[in-house]
Design a binder for these strands. Sequence first.
DNA 1: CTAACGTACAACCAAATGGTTGTAGATGGA
DNA 2: TCCATCTACAACCATTTGGTTGTACGTTAG
Lengths: 135, 135
Amino acid sequence: MVVDGIADETGDAVGRLFHALADATRRDILRRCVRGELSVSRLAAAYPMSFAAVQKHVTVLERAGLVTKERRGREQLVRTDPDAVGRARQALDDLESAWRARVDRMSGLLTEDADATGDADAPAPAQNTTKGPDR
Amino acid sequence: MVVDGIADETGDAVGRLFHALADATRRDILRRCVRGELSVSRLAAAYPMSFAAVQKHVTVLERAGLVTKERRGREQLVRTDPDAVGRARQALDDLESAWRARVDRMSGLLTEDADATGDADAPAPAQNTTKGPDR
DNA sequence: CTAACGTACAACCAAATGGTTGTAGATGGA
DNA sequence: TCCATCTACAACCATTTGGTTGTACGTTAG
């Protein structure tokens, strides 16, 4: 088993990424910090919740690799990591490319191996060729 | 416009989307279904958990708009909605474009006022309305 | 008709989340 | 120096989440 991601949640970076993005407050923090680095207390002042709560949100974002913290004096500046967005997009690309591969098989009129019974299949989705029916 | 989720607080489609994608089992279900529609019981047989648990995962995916269910006899076929991946990508694009906008401002040497009422899905904009970062 | 299958849903439980308060350690300014 | 600020973290609480079992209902095969 252990198809691809399942099983080990400890190292599930993709899971942490999407989990962090699933909260509206955290997405807003990202947008604020993308406009310029802000201290945690500065951020906290912008939300109707305690400093500690915002601090936890920042920690979640940090563990997901979406932001980095940098000390400046007694403040801690938070700033988003632009590459992180790219990492999230990559995870989506994996899903989409799988879909595209299926469409290719269909349009190619190839045999449709709809096994999918047990796990352990994953016949190496060979490079999808051409034809990006990209919505 | 329609920067992000805005409007429906409870609805928060983007939140549901990312939340659904944050679970490894659900991402795996997506990958399986993207290769061809499967009945729920067929899916359930592939995971070391109960049928009901898988059924719940499918419900989460469905409410996030990532899959659709279609009846065929006594079975319920699950199939991924390719457009959903595009919707998730769009949400990421919003974040990235914000970052890009900032870079543009920097390179353009424009004044850096953090007005931008485009706060979108922030939860109850506290008291801090508009600029004037008091305190 | 009857039995087996596939689904739906309710009730329940343990663990994780999102929030609170409180306490304590550094740092900078008067 | 003393004090205000900013941060970190622990303890606690309410709600959600992910999982279980059990029951009920429609559909198809014998």
